[in-house]
Design a protein around this nucleic acid. Sequence first.
DNA 1: TATGAATGAGTATTCATTCAT
DNA 2: CATGAATGAATACTCATTCAT
Lengths: 225, 225, 225, 225
Amino acid sequence: MKSKEATTKRIVDAALSAFAEKGVHQVTVRAIAKRAGISTTRMYRFFPGKEELLVAVVADKLTEMTDGLREHLQGIVGTANKLRKCTWFILHFFESCPEFASLMFVANPLQIWGRPPRGGPAAEQARILAEIVQEGQLAGEVRPDINIKQLRDLYFGGLQRLTYLWLARGMPNKLTDAADGFTKLVFDGIKQPEGAVLKCPFLEWLEATKGPTAQPEVDHGVEVR
Amino acid sequence: MKSKEATTKRIVDAALSAFAEKGVHQVTVRAIAKRAGISTTRMYRFFPGKEELLVAVVADKLTEMTDGLREHLQGIVGTANKLRKCTWFILHFFESCPEFASLMFVANPLQIWGRPPRGGPAAEQARILAEIVQEGQLAGEVRPDINIKQLRDLYFGGLQRLTYLWLARGMPNKLTDAADGFTKLVFDGIKQPEGAVLKCPFLEWLEATKGPTAQPEVDHGVEVR
Amino acid sequence: MKSKEATTKRIVDAALSAFAEKGVHQVTVRAIAKRAGISTTRMYRFFPGKEELLVAVVADKLTEMTDGLREHLQGIVGTANKLRKCTWFILHFFESCPEFASLMFVANPLQIWGRPPRGGPAAEQARILAEIVQEGQLAGEVRPDINIKQLRDLYFGGLQRLTYLWLARGMPNKLTDAADGFTKLVFDGIKQPEGAVLKCPFLEWLEATKGPTAQPEVDHGVEVR
Amino acid sequence: MKSKEATTKRIVDAALSAFAEKGVHQVTVRAIAKRAGISTTRMYRFFPGKEELLVAVVADKLTEMTDGLREHLQGIVGTANKLRKCTWFILHFFESCPEFASLMFVANPLQIWGRPPRGGPAAEQARILAEIVQEGQLAGEVRPDINIKQLRDLYFGGLQRLTYLWLARGMPNKLTDAADGFTKLVFDGIKQPEGAVLKCPFLEWLEATKGPTAQPEVDHGVEVR
DNA sequence: TATGAATGAGTATTCATTCAT
DNA sequence: CATGAATGAATACTCATTCAT
């Protein structure tokens, strides 16, 4: 017999691909059950209804995504590097599971979500970003006047749009190719312009008598390799 | 008698509010017709079907929005000012017609749009932004290495998310309140960092002995706080 | 202005072709009016409804058919000849106006007719056949024990089926080609078997000594080949 | 529990009577389901649509009819007898199930059938008639020059019309009453006129010296009992 | 006479969900 | 645990017909 967990996974997988393929409204519960290889009735033992199934599917993937994100960020030093990794991971995740991306941004009538849950995995991702930025501010790499909430909208909104258009255009290239440019654009907007001070002739002269500054990757952000 | 145009408008308005209120799928054609004060059958004389009606509704508002945007931008000088106006107008438009915003970002299964039409009003808005930025680059206000397409995703994606969350949270405050901060965040990321020179104490002192600079956009501009 | 009669005819013609083409149920009143080049409303001045229009269309053609049949039968002598002419004319009429045939036997849900009107043109045709047969009986050409009502069913039913199959098969050949054979089959069944006497060897010998009989209708009649 | 077959039968029966009663177009799917005592949805598990149901209903009855016809013909000797039985059975079948007759000839827009299927039960009946006639030709009871296809049209067309008028007139008498007369009419038209030789005075005289001939049923066909 | 505007009533078909076994 | 049987409620779209002008 198939264990409960295995069956649950089969259902979720089936639902994900079905939802992404046809669109949430066009998929019948029967079709999902058939894809999962079980009877309709049995599926109701696992999920109380279609909507709950949808929520579960997305939550499942989203959790996987958030967990992966946290893991990938471990050990990375420097705001710009963290941000770049973050961007890359998110785009990579969508790229490797376009069904999920499609479900999130295309097939899914967002209304189903209603107000996004405060403590869910999506909020968790927002928190991760906030942490990165705040740490950057403490480290003097990010300007202290950056409004984190606004940045969040900009960042996630931009990623979402990037992914959506990539899908809409038929996934023509590697989505991750956009990661560096995107990150640089964002980081340029928030980084501490200390380098700017260097452009002051007076200070430059002052610096010149001291020696070069360290941490090039901090100074120039994402464009550094 | 009701002129054809008036009736069309009544239908479109009714459809817009109905779609936004209940969600596209939950609204029956009958309900829209009833809201518009006409019979179902008659409505089919104006629009061949529900989907076409939805498309018409959005296209209608989107065109209105784009036209308004172009008009409001007339006579404005300076990239930052233009950008700020652009942001403000878009947020203002959504704020003054939350039904439309809802339809665009919440109620509307994006799938209907499929690949966004190349020449439609949405593309027009992207073009407007590109023009602003390019002019800024020519004027030396915007860094020449800015990738406009990426900026576009960031900008519109951010605005979309901003609006979406504002709706999802129940329209708690004035959406336009976020305009300045949002614009600043974006502009900071793309502006030519000449102003940095002003931060050099030596130059600042130099300036102070001369008098105020003639930079009207600086007075109201986002970069000044 | 178009005279009332002309307009009526235009409507009837339009209805006939439309009914035959799409089937009575698939044709909208609007479509008929458009075909006739008048407004729907105006059409209702001429016919109180779709059903009445259908009845009128068929009655019109049927009358034309019956009139033509009577005319064509004039001056013809001999039961077999009359019968042959009758068959030929009916098949010819259907052949030259397949729309009508289609309407009668295929497109038209017969239920509309309900009980066929006693005195209508259809009944008139039955009467014509009865006259032919009765005259034949008086003339000794047709057996006196023939039940005319049964013959009528056989004759018209056969013609109807002949025409129906011709239509269903896509009007492959000339429908009138079947006229002679059909008539012969019927006439053989009802004729007074006087010719049988000729098969008596004694009488044949008797005849042979006399010369040919003067029976023109026998020469061209169906029973002779 | 209701077996699948039983439910199917209930549906078909309900559909038959409903179609016949109101006419195919006037009957709603719901009404049929209600008559059958099941839900509309369930009915769609048995038949994919209204049209398929109609086809099934007719095919069902037609098969029953054809099977019965073959069975009833077994063991009958003599073309006239077979023909009489055939006529009687067909009329009897319609008489005992006027709903079916009504559906076939009245309520049913023939268009649904389109071109009658080559191998279906209707074609089978035509084949049965052809066999009877051909055997009659081999046995010398039927004239060899009879065109079987034409005869078929005459025969079935006549029966159809007979039944149609019987229905249209409100089923006033026994339909089978017409069977003998109808058969005789047809058979008279196709039988081998050997008896004609007996009408030759010479042969009659010859016969008279011998005694009466046997096999009266061959001589006089259907009127013999 | 002539018509465009306007409509009410009608229907096949689907699907999430429940229940008896 | 597992399922086939069964359903009620829901909806886009059509069309014959009327009426105000």
